[in-house]
Design a protein around this nucleic acid. Structure first.
Lengths: 193, 193
DNA sequence: TCTGGAAGTTACAGATCGGTAACATCCTAG
DNA sequence: CTAGGATGTTACCGATCTGTAACTTCCAGA
């Protein structure tokens, strides 16, 4: 059969997966629903039977992205059970790996940039998901025995967020190239306190 | 007379200033040329007599924004002539001040997120301007007597870039609230080496 | 085999987009 | 005062956008 990328799953799943990919690559306002349905091998009516609007689809895509990220955290625990410090280093390593593999940055941050209307329905979802991720990193730092866990977690967050956006403007050879070194020396200095 | 925001300057200047403001607030793809000309108190034909396309207008806006930022650097030198370390602290202070005053982040970074097409004419301009800013900060760090000047400059860059994008997704009470503390303790630790 | 819901198809509405043509008007330099 | 360029006005082009209506086809379960 070999439909290429389009697997023979249910239309709703194909739409969601395709939309995630296209929003990520071309931005939310850079992709129309027609292009999504065509790439998903279906049609516009079917999309609107499963999602009440494009905004609703955007939100579902963001939730799906966050869920994928969450699964990565599960992997940290699986690989280093109980060893929170090792998990923190794994976080740094994985972050750098994802920086190298993809230069379009964080879907939620990008969406926040694009959807500037302060009352856009996706904004509260973005905030919730980002806050949950922040709490996870804070907990990881704290459980790794670091004193100022919140401050380290927030610093690492900003570094990563900055690296992801910096890559999009100056490329991979810019400041983001030093992300691992920065993060590791930060962790070391926080542990030394 | 009191035309409100629209001063009685020449149409080209009004268009440029208005476009900068609207692109900043609502994003590039969130603003049409009709809306710009109307807000600038002029019309579409006049816009296209001065700018050959919307893309060209975008580029001019980015250059203008960078020029404004450049003027801020002149102010550092004027306030702390010769004292590069004081200028570095002034940079931190000014960055934090701008974070508090505005939550829409950096126009160039936002543009890079929105204009995802890799061959978009604005992308090379963004890269050039960002690289120039990076070199300025590296030079400032080096002249302030810091050993690993590039690494400090890049770290501060990523922190600021991260703070600006973080504000847009989680708001001013998120990780970006600690920007000054992070930056200052970074500078201190680099100076101690 | 029959049936009912899910999915596909076609066409369209109404708005907005970037960009242009033709023409009227204004304002300033000579 | 007058000429000529800068600006304003109106109308339009073709493309694209989100979203919907009406109808047909498919397919799985009873």
């Amino acid at each position: 059969m070999a439909d290429g990328v389009v697997e023979r799953s249910r239309p709703r799943d194909r739409i969601l997966e395709t939309a995630q990919d296209m929003f990520h690559k071309h931005g939310i306002k850079g992709v129309g629903v027609d292009a999504i349905t065509e790439a998903a091998g279906t049609n516009k009516m079917t999309l609107y039977r499963h999602f009440e609007s494009k905004d609703e689809l955007i939100i579902e895509c963001l939730r799906a992205t966050a869920a994928k990220a969450s699964r990565i955290w599960d992997d940290f625990e699986a690989r280093h059970p109980g060893d929170k410090l090792a998990q923190l280093h794994a976080w740094v390593h994985k972050a750098s790996e994802m920086l190298s593999a993809d230069s379009r940055g964080c879907d939620m941050a990008n969406a926040a940039v694009e959807l500037s209307e302060s009352d856009h329905p996706a904004r509260r979802v973005i905030k919730e998901l980002k806050e949950a991720q922040r709490e996870k990193l804070v907990a990881l730092c704290r459980d790794a025995g670091i004193g100022q866990a919140e401050l380290l977690a927030d610093t690492l967050s900003l570094l990563l967020e900055g690296a992801r956006v910096s890559m999009q403007s100056v490329g991979a050879e810019g400041p983001s190239a030093q992300f691992v070194r920065m993060a590791e020396s930060l962790i070391a200095s926080f542990r030394a306190r």
